[in-house]
């Protein structure tokens, strides 16, 4: 029974949430393209259970009972990250927000019949740095 519990715990942590930020240079324009994303799980659509850790000094990739899947926090990280690229002037910011209120066991296409119990939220932000 112990290995099963350990596998389930590992699976839960791997699916818990993850903040990521990366950049790449567009040779044709000389601009940098920055992309950041974060996602997390919520109880009743508002109480954060676990999400990616958006703290720049984070040790763990996820954080419990704190909401880091907010546009403010992700935008702040993108702006801080962009300061060291080119002139640091950020342009063309574009959000891609995703909300799922009908929790579905991934891969089985079988939703929990009651919505807003366990919900998922993901925010992605991309932009250019001149």
């Amino acid at each position: 029974m112990k290995p099963v519990k350990a596998i389930m715990a590992a699976a839960a942590l791997l699916a818990a949430g993850c903040f990521s930020i990366e950049h790449a240079r567009i040779q044709a324009t000389g601009e940098y393209h920055v992309f950041a994303s974060n996602y997390g799980w919520y109880l009743f659509g508002s109480l954060p259970i676990v999400c990616g850790n958006a703290n720049p000094d984070a040790v763990l990739p996820f954080v419990f009972f704190r909401d880091d899947v907010t546009m403010d926090k992700i935008q702040r990280r993108v702006l801080c990250h962009s300061k060291n690229l080119n002139s640091g002037k950020v342009c063309n910011l574009s959000y891609y927000n995703d909300n799922m209120v009908l929790f579905e066991f991934p891969g089985v296409n079988f939703p929990v019949p009651v919505p807003y119990v366990l919900t998922y939220r993901g925010i992605q932000l991309s932009g250019g740095v001149k």
């Binding site: 567009i26 044709a28 324009t29 601009e31 393209h33 992309f35 994303s37 063309n92 574009s94 891609y96 992605q124 991309s126 250019g128």
Partner: peptide
């Protein structure tokens, strides 16, 4: 060149 570059996953 290119403009309005947007990425998502």
């Amino acid at each position: 060149s290119c403009i309005d570059t947007v990425s998502y996953t």
